[in-house]
């Protein structure tokens, strides 16, 4: 089969573009894509808005990006803000800043630093979260999860000054996984094989199969050992 060469899309400054199938998309400045777009390489600096779906093999975004449809990505790195109205599916995703997804979020590897809000199911192979502000998800299902609060207190002070109520920490109704390692987490139910409940946690019910490790400061409503 003869492969056609896909075009590139370059935006510098402020501009709109239609959707389409591209090899390389580079946006510096403010760009709006009026439709669905697919790209092998999607690289943006500044503010980008996609009014349809976005598909990218490699995605690198600095600044702010909003997707009205679904986002499907291979390896992706976002420094800044990523907002998706649909669902997100990725091979690996690293977000340094703020992530907001109205649908479900699926990724093999997920590194979140800063803050996030997922309204649906957060499903990841390995989820690493370092929270500077709050993290929220309805339901989390993983093979491995580690939640920490950032050690740098300087930002915390600023956030708390802006939003006095915001305390960095994770909030979810259900967290399920094989290896679970939590700190500063508030959840109704945590279920898994090996579970560590660290400081600042408030969990309603913990169901574990092999191992439960809880520090003395953690609040756990009920512990149940399941299986065999």
């Amino acid at each position: 089969m003869e492969s056609t060469v896909k075009p590139n899309l370059l935006i510098s400054g402020v501009s709109d573009a239609g959707g389409g199938d591209y090899e390389k998309v580079k946006i510096d400045g403010v760009g709006t894509i009026k439709g669905s777009i697919a790209a092998v390489n999607f690289d943006t600096n500044g503010m980008t808005k996609v009014l349809g779906d976005l598909r990218a093999n490699i995605m690198d975004c600095d600044g702010m990006i909003k997707v009205d449809g679904h986002l499907t990505a291979g390896k992706s790195v976002v420094d800044g803000t990523l907002k998706v109205k649909g669902s997100l599916k990725a091979e690996s995703l690293a977000v340094n800043g703020f992530l907001r997804i109205d649908g479900d979020c699926e990724s093999e590897v997920l590194d979140l630093e800063g803050s996030f809000e997922v309204q649906g199911l957060l499903n990841a192979g390995r989820l690493n979260a370092v929270l500077q502000w709050k993290g929220e998800a309805r339901e989390i299902g993983v093979e491995f999860i580690k939640v920490r609060r950032t050690s740098k207190a300087s930002w915390n002070k600023l956030w708390r000054w802006i939003m006095p109520k915001a305390v960095p920490g994770l909030k979810a109704s259900v967290i399920e996984g094989d290896d679970i390692d939590l700190e500063y987490t508030e959840a109704d139910i945590v279920r898994g094989n090996r579970i560590r409940i660290g400081k600042g946690c408030k969990i309603g019910l913990v169901e574990y199969r092999t191992e439960l490790n809880a520090v003395s400061g953690a609040k756990i409503g009920k512990e149940v050992k399941t299986g065999d």
Binding site: N123, A124, G192, N193, R209, T226
Partner: peptide, 19 residues
């Protein structure tokens, strides 16, 4: 829960297969 117990699979596997 019943499913995982009956089949001897873990949450991680189930979510992985869903992904």
């Amino acid at each position: 829960k019943e499913l995982l117990d009956e089949k001897g699979i873990s949450y991680g596997q189930l979510y992985r297969w869903k992904r």
